[in-house]
């Protein structure tokens, strides 16, 4: 902008310096792009060289397994409904693990997020501590806690539930505290002036403001946790994942069961995906209409 005031300056100079800037910018972008492409290609080759089978060799076979499963499942199509009934309790367990973990994790996240938000914290000096706690809880992959707890508690749904809940508390805690930062502190101050305790201030002053957003994030988390719960089952924590692993290790002859479970898992995930996006849409837009 400053250059415009210097009217006496020849425009060719301006043009040249602008072109030089553009050229440098293009050069930088080009270098960045080249580095990125080099990283992707070499990384891909490295990963391929350490893989059991090669990428180009395996590419034509990619549909072999699904088609085997589908053809065997189709040939025994009449048994599929029976399998769905058989494995429904396992599916229910997988969904229950995710639901309880989301519920408990969200409750912890509420407390942690309130304790780590400026202006709301009960112990203002400890906000940093609670934030770091959430960081660590978020960073621990579910599989770590699940496997350790399986060693101590034995197999079953509880290790997976605790593992997912810990991660959920950290992940939701961060999102919740971002929501809290946007909440107005005036109701809190008002409640404080009439002598409300910390829990009263939070429950009556903050929660009504942020509850819809919290709920929206928690629903998104539920959807993610259902996937996590299925994967954890596969590494030994019960539910549909475990049954799926057994059926897959059996291989041919049980592909109809595997197919039924693939179908159940797919439908469940799509169902919760659609449900959560529908409800979240209502939560954010419904609020606006009510004003």
């Amino acid at each position: 902008m400053a250059d415009l005031t210097h009217a006496h300056r020849p425009t060719t100079d301006l043009h040249q310096s602008y072109m030089a800037l553009v050229g440098r910018r293009r050069l930088y972008s080009g270098i960045m792009l080249a580095i990125f492409v080099a990283l992707m290609v070499s990384g891909f080759n490295l990963a391929a060289s350490r893989n059991g089978g090669s990428f180009w060799g395996g590419l034509p076979n990619i549909l072999d397994y699904p088609s085997e499963v589908v053809s065997e499942a189709l040939s025994k199509a009449s048994e599929i409904p029976g399998h769905i009934v058989t494995y429904f309790p396992a599916l229910l367990e997988t969904v229950n693990i995710a639901a309880v973990a989301t519920l408990i994790g969200a409750l912890f996240a509420v407390v942690l997020s309130l304790l780590s938000t400026r202006g709301m914290a009960a112990f203002p000096r400890l906000t940093g501590l609670f934030r770091r706690t959430m960081d660590v809880m978020r960073a621990v992959p579910e599989i770590v806690i699940a496997l350790l707890l399986i060693f101590v508690l034995g197999g079953g749904p509880v290790p997976a539930m605790i593992a997912i809940a810990v991660h959920t508390a950290g992940a939701l805690g961060k999102l919740f505290s971002e929501v809290n930062e946007n909440a107005s502190l005036k109701p809190v101050e008002g409640l404080q002036s009439v002598g409300a305790s910390w829990s009263q201030r939070m429950l009556l002053g903050v929660v009504p403001q942020v509850a819809p957003n919290w709920l929206s994030y928690a629903l998104l988390r539920l959807e993610i946790n259902i996937r996590a719960s299925a994967i954890l089952g596969f590494v030994g924590a019960g539910g549909l994942g475990y049954e799926l692993k057994v059926a897959i290790q059996w291989g041919q002859g049980k592909f109809d069961e595997a197919g039924a479970m693939f179908l159940m898992l797919f439908l469940t995930i799509v169902f919760f995906d659609q449900l959560s996006s529908h409800v979240r849409d209502r939560l954010t837009h419904g609020q606006r209409v009510k004003g």
Partner: peptide
């Protein structure tokens, strides 16, 4: 099943 075990998979 298609690519074997490893990081690429």
């Amino acid at each position: 099943r298609a690519f074997g075990l490893g990081p690429l998979t």
